[in-house]
């Protein structure tokens, strides 16, 4: 083997990974680039560079209303789903109790059910009880499908906790409540934060279930879906890109802070 082929075969997996990441990021780069496009109506062909879309992200009709709804729904759904899911995760991760397998199935089922089935069945129920779909029905639906993901994430964190840490706290004169407050909760907290972030992104990004249960309330994904058929305004790209950047910064900062807190040099 000559030098070049040896280098190639040794780095094959890395080359592959680079291509893989390029594939993952191509549409995001495209979205970002076209957020600077000086398009008038449909943002399909590159016309020219402009910062106008970024200066005026609410320029397209209804886009900021939809975004506002999505953010409000995301925050509310994350709040409730994180609380309910974390409580369940502690029960699952810390206690032996009867009916465990039934609870396990109930947590697993929403993750194994296609979104369209959940969306459709919830709508069926809301209609048959005379509920008009709207803002709160979206929140309810989002909490429902986020709970399972929160449980799984937090439970994994609890399971990875060394039980000796809590025993050490009890040994050092901390009663059950103090042990939870000083040791258990601070150590599980990163898992809860990760679960909340996951819940928010699931809620913010959801289209299928939302579309069934939203009535005439607009959300950002719904806005994209509807306007995609007659050409997406560049403002949608601006919002998508900035959401992406904000989330990326939050995660990277969180990682940095976490590393500092853990004391890694």
């Amino acid at each position: 083997m000559n030098k070049a082929t040896r280098w190639f075969s040794r780095n094959l997996i890395r080359i592959y990974a680079v291509i893989g990441f390029a594939y993952l990021f191509l549409p995001i780069v495209y979205t970002f680039v076209f957020s600077f496009n000086d398009s008038k109506k449909s943002n399909l062909v590159w016309v020219g560079f402009t910062l106008n879309n970024w200066k005026n992200p609410c320029g397209a009709p209804d886009v900021c209303n939809a975004l506002g709804n999505s953010l409000k729904i995301g925050v509310l759904a994350t709040f409730f789903a994180t609380i309910l899911g974390t409580l369940m995760a502690f029960a699952m991760g810390r206690y032996a109790f009867k009916g465990r397998s039934v609870v396990n199935i109930l947590i697993f089922l929403p993750m194994a059910t296609p979104e369209i089935v959940m969306g459709a069945s919830l709508l069926t129920m809301f209609i048959s009880f005379g509920f008009n779909p709207g803002f709160w029905t979206i929140v309810i639906a989002h909490v429902m499908f986020c709970i399972s993901f929160v449980v799984v994430t937090v439970k994994a964190r609890i399971a990875s906790l060394d039980p000796r840490l809590e025993q050490a706290a009890m040994d050092l004169y901390a009663d059950e409540r103090e042990t939870f407050r000083r040791i258990t909760f601070p150590l599980v907290a990163p898992g809860i934060a990760a679960a909340a972030l996951l819940a928010f992104s699931l809620s913010f990004d959801d289209f299928i279930i939302t579309n069934f249960n939203s009535g005439d309330v607009n959300t950002f994904p719904k806005f994209v879906y509807i306007s995609a058929q007659r050409g997406l305004p560049a403002q949608a790209n601006v919002i998508g890109s900035s959401m992406f950047l904000i989330a990326l910064i939050i995660v990277l900062v969180g990682q940095f802070v976490g590393r500092k807190r853990a004391g890694v040099r």
């Binding site: 000796r164 840490l165 025993q167 706290a169 853990a262």
Partner: peptide, 11 residues
Amino acid sequence: TVFQNYALFPH
């Protein structure tokens, strides 16, 4: 108790 592997509170 001095625990096996010490069980120091990492945070």
